[in-house]
């Protein structure tokens, strides 16, 4: 022991010193550090808790915001839809109104045109007749008196002879609606008689009159789905096919 340097007094001093150091370390180093670790752990836990709360709040806020945005979007889309519907309805109204207006205007215009055309053709009729008579007089030499000529020409153009419609003599027609097409407008008395004739012969309910200069003369009468062609152009066609 002596050779190793182990010595009772030194050993005692060292042990006492060690106990003092133990007291110092446990009281002023370990104690504060443990309390600090504890505090730090608490702080960290608090911080984590705070962060969790904050993140919860944020998540809530996000959800809220999402809800608000969704509501706003729904409202906006509804508004848009309503507006679109209203606009569509308004546009349809406007269109319909415009269409009605347009059709009315067109009808009016058509009617005006028809009337004008009829009037012009009616005016022409006298002149054409006069011209024809003059021409024929030159050709055949005043064989016919003027009144007779007028009647003949009127018959030619209208196919109405002494109040009777020539083409209806031996045609059997029946139907609801009748349409009479002439090369020149008929006078109102002619129309009356033709109407009476057609109505009486065919049992039709209503008669409409049309003017079509391309048939040259005579009448084309259409009752129901049948047509009686008493027109000059139809006769010329028949003649042309016979000659061929």
């Amino acid at each position: 022991m002596e050779a190793l340097g182990i010595n009772g007094s030194f050993l005692l001093v060292q042990i006492v010193n060690l106990i003092i150091v133990y007291v110092v370390v446990s009281k002023w180093i370990v104690g504060p550090i443990i309390s600090m670790l504890e505090k730090r752990r608490e702080t960290i836990a608090q911080g984590i808790e705070d962060a969790r709360v904050a993140s919860d709040a944020r998540a809530n806020a996000e959800k809220e915001a999402e809800k608000i945005v969704a509501e706003a979007q729904a409202k906006a889309s509804q508004v848009v839809r309503e507006a679109t519907e209203r606009a569509t309805a308004a546009a349809a109204d406007v269109k319909a109104a415009a269409a009605a207006e347009a059709s009315k205007a067109r009808e009016k215009a058509l009617a005006g045109v028809e009337e004008e055309r009829s009037r012009i053709l009616g005016d022409l009729r006298g002149q054409v007749a006069a011209l024809s008579i003059a021409a024929t007089q030159k050709l055949v030499g005043e064989a016919l008196d003027e009144k007779r000529q007028h009647t003949l020409i009127a018959e030619f153009f209208t196919g109405v002879k002494a109040g009777k419609i020539v083409v209806l003599e031996d045609a059997k027609l029946s139907g609801e609606d009748a349409e009479i097409t002439s090369a020149l407008p008929l006078t109102s008395s002619e129309q009356e008689s033709a109407k009476k004739e057609v109505l009486g012969k065919t049992g039709a309910q209503a008669v409409t009159f049309k003017v079509d200069p391309s048939i040259l003369g005579g009448l084309v009468i259409k009752v129901g789905d049948k047509v009686v062609d008493g027109s000059v152009s139809g006769k010329l066609d028949g003649l042309r096919s016979n000659l061929r």
Binding site: V25, W28, P32, M36
Partner: peptide
């Protein structure tokens, strides 16, 4: 021993001041 006492003084005073990081 002196070094340990110095460390003890440093740590205890720092912790008493409420420091969380030494």
């Amino acid at each position: 021993d002196l070094v340990i006492i110095a460390i003890a003084i440093g740590i205890s005073s720092a912790v008493k001041k409420g420091k969380l990081i030494l």
